[in-house]
């Protein structure tokens, strides 16, 4: 008998993900969004800082599809440029949080005992540190730097991820399949990687899709305080917070960046749900 193809969990998962229409829509939307943001400078006729004070805040028109803000800057351009920052922050910071959190949590949970106590007390201490002071300190020491800002956010967001993964791993490692792996002589690293992490992925993916919007809003908050990016640069978070101020006179300043953020989050959630199901062999295969 010939060996059928597509054996590993990941190959199997990608096949199943491709069958999930909603998740694929989400994925396509995200890819298009990222591409659009990347090629923005070459496709939009305006610069993000280009003001046309005569226009003021004008409603959507043929020349400015999504209208202009109070300085007469084209909203479409600003949203696309803002997307570069927001998506970059969202993905990089979450990625950092994901890597650190999963590794840290899995090691603590698997090791158990004193190692676990010390590692988790460290997490508790990090939790207790006021987040703002932590960020401000980083900015003071290393200077204001966009990449550093992302790293700093990621370095805070991983704490919860570590706790989630540790809890999962603690439960999983009591199951006999982990003992079975020990008894065939598997190394601790391989046990964590092959047996524990794949089984802990469900909650991790859900939490990841929750972290991305969190991080985007955090960036807006920091920028608002003058710690993040500075005008005339922008991000979705910043655009929204400015939009809120003039919500009644110029609603399009709030609506369009809001829609961009909301659609992205929808897409992320659909993709996240799809990924979770695809990675769970128990989800029906029809």
């Amino acid at each position: 008998m010939e060996m059928p193809k597509g054996v590993s969990l990941w190959e199997d998962a990608s096949v199943r993900l491709r069958k999930n229409k909603l998740a694929m829509c989400g994925l396509v939307f995200l890819v298009v969004m990222v591409l659009l943001c990347l090629i923005t400078p070459w496709i939009v006729p305006y610069g993000y800082e280009e003001q046309d004070l005569r226009l003021g805040a004008s409603a959507p028109s043929a020349a400015h599809w999504l209208g202009t803000d109070i300085f007469g800057r084209d909203m479409l351009t600003r949203i696309l440029y803002g997307g570069r920052v927001s998506l970059f922050v969202g993905f990089i910071a979450t990625f950092v949080a994901l890597i650190i959190g999963v590794t840290y949590g899995a090691i603590a949970g698997y090791a158990g005992g004193k190692v676990d106590s010390i590692m988790m007390r460290l997490v508790d201490i990090m939790y207790a540190l006021p987040f703002m002071i932590f960020i401000v300190l980083l900015m003071v020491v290393f200077g204001r730097n966009l990449v550093l800002l992302f790293m700093a956010i990621g370095a805070v967001e991983w704490l919860t991820m570590a706790r989630i993964v540790r809890g999962q791993v603690q439960n999983l490692k009591q199951q006999e399949f982990v003992e079975a792996a020990v008894s065939i002589g598997q190394s601790p690293f391989a046990i964590i990687w092959k047996h524990l992490i794949p089984n802990a992925l469900g909650p991790v993916i859900v939490y990841t899709t929750l972290t991305i919007p969190n991080v985007m809003l955090l960036e807006a908050f920091l920028s608002f305080l003058g710690l993040g990016i500075q005008p005339p640069s922008s991000s979705w978070g910043l655009l929204i917070s400015y939009g809120v101020e003039s919500m009644e006179e110029y609603p399009w300043l709030l609506i369009f960046p809001g829609v961009a953020l909301a659609l992205t989050l929808f897409a992320l959630n659909f993709l996240g749900d799809g990924l979770r199901d695809a990675l769970d062999p128990k989800a029906s295969r029809d």
Binding site: L9, F177, A180, K194
Partner: peptide, 11 residues
Amino acid sequence: ASLNPRMTVYD
């Protein structure tokens, strides 16, 4: 409990 739910017989 003694089989990893995310590994096929092959794995």
